[in-house]
């Protein structure tokens, strides 16, 4: 019954973006297990991942104002995620839910979102979990875990 449907998609789009000089530094310093942020000279806002323009006061943040964070942070919000999207609009229901957190890194003003391991709660202190083989890429930072 009803009318037929046809998919009219002639290609699969795999977009690739230039991350820019500042983000490149951010990812390359993962090779030394470092997390960089940009601290605004004018208003003190500290943004991670770093940016060239302060999202609070719009001042330019120069490369000299990149600072290394301790990597430790506090869980501000937490959710047990029961699904993943498969990239085609479908749901993959997870056998075991994964924990996703909003984390405020020590010294940062902005929030990051990352997977967390262990018995995390709102307020838990967490630290980064690095991949065994690190090469200065996004995949180096696997997740965060609760500090023992």
């Amino acid at each position: 019954m009803g009318v037929d449907r046809y998919s009219g998609l002639p290609f699969v789009a795999r977009f690739r973006w230039n991350v820019g000089k500042t983000m490149e530094k951010f990812y390359r310093s993962f090779a030394e297990k470092k997390i960089l942020a940009a601290r605004c000279e004018k208003c003190g806002y500290t943004v991670v991942p770093p940016r060239q323009i302060c999202p609070k006061c719009y001042s330019t943040i120069s490369e000299e104002n990149l600072v290394e964070l301790s990597g430790k942070g506090v869980v501000e919000s937490l959710t047990e995620v029961a699904f993943k999207l498969d990239g085609k609009g479908g749901y993959i229901w997870l056998e075991k839910p994964e924990l996703l957190a909003a984390i405020r890194l020590e010294g940062a003003s902005s929030t990051i979102f990352a997977r967390v391991e262990g018995e995390a709660k709102v307020g838990s202190e967490v630290e980064p979990v690095w991949a065994e083989k690190i090469e200065g890429k996004p995949s180096d930072l696997i997740s965060f875990k609760v500090v023992e």
């Binding site: 973006w17 991942p49 994964e98 996703l100 957190a101």
Partner: peptide
């Protein structure tokens, strides 16, 4: 699924758990 395209592509879109629903859940908890 489309809401993943609202994420900033260089960092947040690298995290496959982030989408409109999971972010709203973090907002709800907060």
């Amino acid at each position: 699924q489309v809401t993943q395209y609202m994420l900033e592509p260089w960092f947040d879109r690298q995290n496959e758990l982030l989408n409109e629903i999971t972010l709203a859940a973090l907002q709800a908890r907060l």
